[in-house]
């Protein structure tokens, strides 16, 4: 087997192991949350007997390790369980499966993240490379100052400014990003324009600065001087001689920012009333809807692990030392 394949498989195995550890942490930290669904739904007036009966119905009376094993084994079978909400004391069970609850929300989040990534990643690379090419020029300083400004402002602030500019003063895009399953693709794009721009402004700075730094870091290398002395132009030096050696750090920071687009955008979702997974999780935490919270946390963790794995693989396959061993 090629050593690179072996390394990748090893990373994959480690990723799975990490996921297990994370699942245990998620489970135990949710158990530590004060109060439980029974009390939250039935209210303080409920008798101890009613609460106990309700807890028993939901399986909350079993000891924690048993509940954990139950959860993990059903997740492994693809069953994320049933949401607690909708099981109010009225006696009618209107609860839905967790998968059914999460699926449309996750789709929305991934759609927003995808659109943002398609804009932000190429943009960041382009700005980063040109800034490195014309380093210390007016252009370089300009984009550096600009991206620093956008990254320094809180997301909700950026969002409200965009609403003010692009929705109130010059009404180009809607300020509400309320989409549902029936929204057409084009309309969907129009509605998520403002959240996508907000997120782009937030993440471009980080990726762009890393790209610039990774390239400039290499420019002091003897092989860059050699390339110059062989008559390479400045853009050739950057694109052909520096960039191929800079992919690993750039991929890492891109993966980090893409993960943020999935797991960290709840504030932006709230501002634009976008039905994403972040809002769902926050609502579920408030309602002590444990199965949903756990599933969301697990999805977030997997997002991080998978994206970092991809960044690692990019780092490996762009390193000839690993790809072509001696």
């Amino acid at each position: 087997m090629h050593p690179v394949l072996a390394t990748i498989l090893k990373r994959l195995g480690l990723g799975v192991a990490t996921l297990f550890v994370v699942s245990a942490i998620i489970f135990s930290s949710i158990s530590l949350l004060p109060g439980d669904f029974g009390e939250a739904v039935l209210g303080q007036a409920a008798t101890t007997e009613t609460v106990a009966a309700f807890r028993k119905e939901l399986g909350l009376d079993k000891p924690a390790p048993v509940r954990y094993l139950d959860w993990v084994s059903s997740v492994l079978k693809g069953d994320f369980g049933t949401s607690f909400s909708g099981r109010a004391a009225s006696g009618v069970d209107r609860s839905r499966s967790v998968a059914e609850l999460i699926a449309p929300r996750l789709k929305n989040t991934l759609f927003l993240a995808g659109v943002t990534a398609i804009i932000a990643v190429p943009l960041a690379l382009l700005i980063g490379l040109t800034a490195a090419l014309y380093r210390n020029s007016l252009y370089d300083r300009g984009v550096n100052a600009l991206t620093l400004t956008t990254i320094s402002m809180p997301e909700f602030f950026v969002a409200y400014i965009l609403i003010l500019l692009l929705s109130s003063l010059w009404p180009v895009f809607p300020s509400l990003a309320n989409v549902d399953a029936s929204t057409e693709f084009g309309e969907r794009l129009r509605r998520i324009a403002l959240p996508a721009i907000t997120l782009t402004l937030v993440i471009v700075a980080h990726m762009m600065r890393m790209t610039r730094a990774a390239i400039i870091n290499l420019l002091a290398s003897p092989y860059i001087e050699m390339a110059l002395l062989k008559g390479a132009s400045r853009s050739e030096v950057i694109l052909k001689h520096a960039l191929p050696n800079a992919w690993a750090p750039i991929a890492t920071v891109i993966a980090f920012n893409l993960a943020y687009l999935v797991v960290g955008v709840v504030v932006v979702e709230v501002v634009f009333v976008y039905p994403g997974i972040g809002q769902l999780m926050v609502d579920s935490v408030t309602a002590r809807d444990t199965p949903v919270v756990q599933a969301c946390a697990l999805i977030f963790a997997s997002t991080y692990i998978v994206l970092n794995l991809i960044a690692d693989v990019i780092g490996i396959v762009t390193n000839p030392r690993l790809l072509h061993p001696r």
Partner: peptide, 23 residues
């Protein structure tokens, strides 16, 4: 640049560092 690598060439001290590892 029209002279470098064509009319005048350079051989650097540490060949290990002066070759681009990616090509």
């Amino acid at each position: 640049r029209a002279f470098w690598g064509t009319r005048i060439a350079y051989v650097a001290q540490s060949a290990a560092a002066a070759f681009n590892p990616a090509h």
